[in-house]
């Protein structure tokens, strides 16, 4: 085993506990309402629902690994979607088809992702070069990005996209929904990045001890800029999925996803103070959330109770994590428990 990270006891790791939670939730829901929860329709509808916020959670995750946070993910995804959609409506229109449509969609996606990358670069610069705390930097820049999207559209939805846009969010390939494939690629990509590339290892090292990273001559500024650029690109991709599923783009789509993304990342065992976290944890957190909310839907429980249960799950998991084993990973917590 060439595992570079410190060894964790299998059962004390947050991921193992999460896996148990995900399975328990799945089994409970399946038992409570087998014919509906396990139905193919439910499976597909779940599969189409989660990728958009799950991708945002991945964007959040990479910044949290450095001990930062990206509160601008939703802003970036809407801004890039609005720009992409505007290009499509201005130059292509709803009636376009064939090669020309594919070309314009390709151009729009390329530009949208570049927008995400630039927005992330902007975050990286104000954090790395100007030294703003990430939480404030991205709170401010998130408002700017959202604001630009509002200013561009006057606050209304951009409608009239070419028919091909719908493919990304609504079609399946060999029976697997396209957004799920996309999410899988992005999650695997990030996981690979963290475990098997120099960049990924540096992210974790920086998150563990930023000062030591500086003394070890890591290029900290470039590292942070790259991290926030990756976050920006992932956010932009989430924006494409949202645009495709809504068949439109708007400045305030998915505004509830911001806190959800933070919640999933933390639930997934990402140490909010940086340095520790595994993508598998985030994936398990996403699945738990989705099983839970779909299951509750089946059981005719109101939509709003999802929020309630998410919150309870988050705090429950945090209590379990802090009470055992996780303390080591929270080495930099300003609030240590103890004290008399």
């Amino acid at each position: 085993m060439n595992n570079l990270s410190p060894k964790n006891n299998m059962f004390s790791s947050p991921e193992a506990r999460l896996a148990v939670i995900a399975i328990v939730v799945f089994i409970t829901m399946a038992a409570l309402s087998p014919e509906r929860f396990l139905s193919p329709q439910n499976m597909t509808s779940m599969a189409f629902q989660f990728p958009e916020f799950a991708i945002l959670a991945l964007a959040m995750t990479i910044t949290m690994l450095t001990g930062g946070i990206d509160l601008s993910v939703v802003g970036i995804s809407n801004l890039s979607a609005v720009i992409g959609a505007t290009i499509l409506t201005q130059f292509a229109g709803p009636d376009i088809a064939g090669i020309e449509m594919a070309m314009w969609i390709g151009i729009a996606i390329a530009i949208s992702i570049s927008v995400g990358m630039l927005a992330g670069l902007f975050n990286g610069i104000i954090i790395a070069i100007f030294g703003l705390p990430p939480i404030l930097a991205t709170l401010g820049s998130g408002l700017v990005f959202t604001g630009l999207a509002v200013a561009l559209t006057g606050g209304s939805a951009v409608l009239g996209l070419p028919s091909g846009v719908a493919w990304l969010g609504n079609e399946t390939v060999f029976g697997v929904p396209v957004p799920v494939i996309l999410f899988a690629i992005l999650a695997l990509g990030l996981s690979f990045l963290l475990a098997r590339t120099s960049f990924g290892l540096k992210i974790q090292m920086y998150g563990t001890n930023p000062l030591a990273a500086q003394f070890a001559a890591l290029d900290v500024n470039r590292l942070l800029m790259k991290v926030y650029m990756v976050s920006g690109v992932y956010s932009a991709i989430a924006g494409m999925v949202i645009m495709s599923r809504a068949n439109s783009a708007k400045a305030d789509y998915g505004s509830s996803y911001l806190l959800l993304a933070v919640l999933i990342a933390v639930l997934g065992g990402i140490n909010p103070y940086g340095g520790y976290g595994r993508i598998i944890g985030v994936v398990l957190a996403v699945l738990s959330m989705q099983f839970l909310s779909s299951g509750l839907n089946m059981l005719q429980v109101s939509n709003f109770s999802r929020e309630l249960i998410w919150g309870m799950l988050l705090i429950f998991v945090m209590i379990v994590n802090t009470q055992k084993g996780f303390k080591l990973n929270l080495g930099k917590t300003p609030q240590t428990k103890s004290g008399k």
């Binding site: 990270s5 120099s198 540096k202 090292m205 030591a212 080591l328």
Partner: peptide, 26 residues
Amino acid sequence: TEGLFLTQSIVRNVSIGRLDNHQNAG
């Protein structure tokens, strides 16, 4: 505080300055 990445492994602490040299095609 300045030298070590305490929660990380020994090998990571040693190799941090050499990661780029052990990277082939990403």
